[in-house]
Design a binder for these strands. Structure first.
Length: 574
DNA sequence: GCCGTTTTCGGCCCGACTGTTTTCAGTCG
């Protein structure tokens, strides 16, 4: 685990403990804010400590800066250890129970001696808990439900699962009479790689009726809340859906507000206050007068800001960039001219090259690269040199047969543990495109892995490094590698790094993409499709790239056929 | 605990929903 993440987690836990101790809420927020900023940093916190620039990080002042230095130097934070002794260990994790907050928990601890989940569950079965001020039958049921939810809900859902699910629900809600402009908000609209619950916004006058109809939709298992502007339900599969109903006059303000991120909104509201305005989910107000609300653009305009794309609303410099008129011109799905990473029946894909090509052509692509696996990937039926040349012949024939799309003959070549590639150079040179990746030996130490990957990139025939960190969302951590070194190598050789669009990969992730685009290294956004339909995952990769501020000029497969062909050759000349 | 063209103290985003309240606290996003 990176130090950034470790420190982020510690600060968050410290915030939780301070919450239970009913400390100053603004101090607690400072810890949470710092945690988030450190976790999402694009550089290693150690480097910042070495440069003595900690207080340049937003939300880090002298005190938190000292704590970070202490952790980097000694591996621990004294104040954290002291704080941990003040509350029972099991109490902090109970904060994860929906409906049970720090105030109630602290009371339960003081008055009933509840220290952990076991204690809590036992108390909920008894009568004594009802004697506590503010506790009633319903509250008890609420907490029980919260515990069940925590036990079963588990992890955040990958974007690739949440997105189609949300689209189905939106379709259902759109059918409720009186609704208009139904749209996903929240982290889904920002296209975060995982989504906690699904937020949906709709425009209607008769809020109460809409919410009632919503809570009666067929996949709804449980209703958590149902007012006249807000409803929350749990679906059969355990997903929570929140629906908000607003009137047309407030649609833009509500969309802005419910899209978040929270940090982005807080900064916007702070700027509003400086201008003597107030922003809430109903609009922008000067004194009591509403001056904007129908559209997001209007709200931004009252702050003298251009509209900011949802994917970058994370308070990571986008508001400052907007103020300076230097917002990035983000890559769009429509900019993508081809897909350079996919598999066919020749290795572990499910259909023929021709079927993949036809599907790609249907998507309007100008080109694809067929990149089946190399021999070391036995499980994926990697091609022997002999079969590779047979496949090359098929590609040549298909290029004559199918008009309107160019098929590049390629390979996804394994990077062996010593950094050498799985085909000899005299074979690689016969391929139009070579993408290299790690498929084994994930547990290597950081230095060896970095050396391994850098060496592979240095092979003159390699065009791109694909799924560069090997992570699988919710299943496998990224392997240890010095990404800065990899980026530096790619930069010096003019090679590309992939944003793999497969929904469990999204690798590079948004944070790494941002690093890459900051130094001007090329990206290739591809799907790694094993089925024709998986070519559609491109939108996930493009969104990830957008979250990393990638522009069209950063992406090699946003070039037309001519431009890309030229790039493929140029890489090998350097 | 952080932050600053109303700077080194006094602020710190804002509203909905719920349950237990008789005017509001707690939780959530």
């Amino acid at each position: 685990m990176s130090k950034n993440r470790e420190i982020g987690d510690i600060f968050d836990t410290m915030a939780d403990i301070l919450d239970l101790l009913e400390d100053n809420p603004f101090r607690i927020r400072a810890y949470r804010n710092a945690a988030r900023n450190i976790r999402e940093l694009t550089v290693n916190i150690e480097d910042i400590v070495n440069r003595d620039e900690l207080t340049k990080i937003p939300g880090i002042g002298k005190d938190l800066g000292d704590k970070i230095s202490e952790f980097i130097q000694t591996g621990k934070i004294n104040d954290y250890d002291k704080l941990k002794k003040k509350v029972p260990e099991g109490l902090v994790e109970l904060l994860g129970i929906q409906g049970l907050g720090p105030k109630t928990l602290s009371k339960l601890n003081k008055e009933l001696g509840i220290k952990n989940l076991d204690d809590l569950e036992r108390a909920l079965e008894g009568k004594k808990i009802l004697t506590i001020h503010g506790m009633g039958e319903k509250k008890v049921e609420d907490i029980k439900r919260g515990i069940e939810l925590l036990k079963h809900s588990g992890e955040r859902m990958p974007l690739g699962i949440a997105l189609p699910l949300a689209e189905e629900i939106i379709f259902e809600i759109s059918k409720i009479p009186g609704t208009e402009g139904t749209i996903a908000a929240g982290s889904l609209r920002r296209m975060r790689e995982t989504v906690g619950d699904i937020d949906i916004l709709t425009m209607a006058k008769n809020g109460e009726e809409i919410i009632k109809a919503f809570t009666n939709l067929s996949p709804v298992k449980e209703v958590l809340a149902a007012g006249d502007t807000k409803g929350s339900v749990i679906l059969e599969n355990g997903t929570q859906i929140d629906l908000r109903v607003v009137e047309q006059e407030s649609y833009g303000a509500a969309l802005l507000y419910f899209t978040g991120s929270k940090a982005h909104n807080i900064k916007l509201r702070t700027i509003a206050l400086e201008k003597g305005l107030k922003i809430n989910e109903y609009g922008a107000f000067r004194d009591k007068e509403k001056i904007a609300g129908k559209k997001e653009e209007e709200i931004y305009k009252t702050l003298e800001l251009p509209w900011i794309p949802p994917e970058i609303r994370e308070d990571k410099g986008e508001i400052e960039a907007a103020l300076d008129s230097r917002l990035p011109n983000l890559i769009e799905l429509e900019d993508i001219r081809g897909d350079l990473h996919m598999h066919s029946k020749w290795s572990d894909g499910k259909v023929t090259i021709e079927e993949m090509a036809q599907k790609a052509k249907g998507l309007g692509y100008e080109y694809i690269a067929m990149t089946d696996h190399s021999p070391s990937s036995r499980i994926a039926r990697g091609l022997s040199v002999e079969r590779l040349y047979e496949k090359k012949k098929e590609v040549e024939e298909l290029n004559k047969k199918i008009k309107g799309i160019k098929i590049f003959m390629g390979s996804e070549v394994d990077i062996k543990s010593d950094g050498s590639l799985d085909y000899p150079d005299e074979v690689l040179k016969d391929l139009d495109i070579v993408i290299a990746s790690v498929h084994s030996g994930f547990k290597m130490d950081r230095e060896s892995m970095t050396r391994r990957i850098v060496k592979a990139l240095q092979n003159p025939f390699v065009h791109a490094l694909v799924h560069p960190t090997g992570r699988l969302i919710g299943e496998r951590e990224a392997f240890e590698v010095d990404m800065d070194e990899v980026i530096k190598t790619a930069k010096s050789l003019g090679k590309a790094l992939e944003v793999n669009s497969y929904y469990l990969r999204l690798d590079l992730n948004d944070i790494n993409v941002r690093k890459v685009t900051q130094v001007g290294v090329k990206l290739v956004i591809s799907t790694d499709a094993h089925l024709p339909d998986q070519l559609g995952m491109m939108r996930l990769g493009v969104s990830t790239a957008r979250r990393g501020w990638a522009e069209k000029k950063d992406v090699v497969n946003a070039m037309d056929l001519k431009g890309l062909s030229k790039w493929l050759k140029e890489v090998r000349k350097e």
